[in-house]
Amino acid sequence: MFTNMIIGRYMPGNSWIHRLDARTKLILSVAFIFVVFFANNVAGYVVAIAFTLLSILLTGLGVGVFIRGVRPLMFLMFITTLLQLFFVQTGDVLWHWAFLTITTDGVTNSIAVFVRFMLIIMFSTILTLTTQPLAVADAMESLLQPLKKVGFPVAELALMLSIALRFVPTLMDEAESIMNAQRARGVEFNEGNIISRIKAFVPLLIPLFINAIKRAIELGDAMEARGYRGGDNRTKYRVLTWQKQDTIAVIGFIVFTVLLIATKWL
């Protein structure tokens, strides 16, 4: 049951995108969210869709994986699109009933929002599908380095993130065995209405939390025994290296941005 909870889980591979530096992928994914707003006509969207499809093809994972990644967010996309459809009141009225009005602007806006949403999710999924969570944490640490100057505990935050990621499978296994223990005593996790289902999770969460705290105490002892004393004088075993392909990816992205802006004058 836990396998479909993670949106766009890392899928191992050795594609050109997989081999990119995590920092490149992180920066470009964030940049894409802003850049995609430059698209404001059909040509712009065609360029944005083409660029996203090209990036997806370069991951070598197949479009199906990405569509499955979008599915959990479909509901949210649907609501946003509906809101656009009914609340934009400018343009010619196409349909009117009681307080509901659909206008031409409403239709074009909702299509634009839908496409934009879809593209942003797909592009972010490229990051999560092709990059190990740990590499993303490393990338964040590296990109946040400047904040160290103002006293922000970057190294501590990165270690916290990496330990949290490290314990995800451990805690999932634990949840699974607690659930089995509860099932053996007659608890039904997948039956009844939503309220009784949520209630069934309470006896799962309490032992899970207690054990997690115990684990944290033991982990703290183990870390201290191994000489951990805060982030400042530590060296790093894992390093990120900027390669030629990262420069190429950034140039590719700049070209895309310029093209997208250029479509305004088409």
């Binding site: 990621l165 684990r215 982990l219 183990a222 870390m223 000489g227 951990y228 004393r229 060296t235 075993y237």
Partner: peptide, 19 residues
């Protein structure tokens, strides 16, 4: 499990050295 700090075997062995 509760003394395995690193995300991989090599990272875990390196933890004490990093410190």
């Amino acid at each position: 499990d509760n003394q395995f700090v690193g995300a991989t075997v090599a990272d875990d062995v390196a933890f004490g050295l990093e410190n």
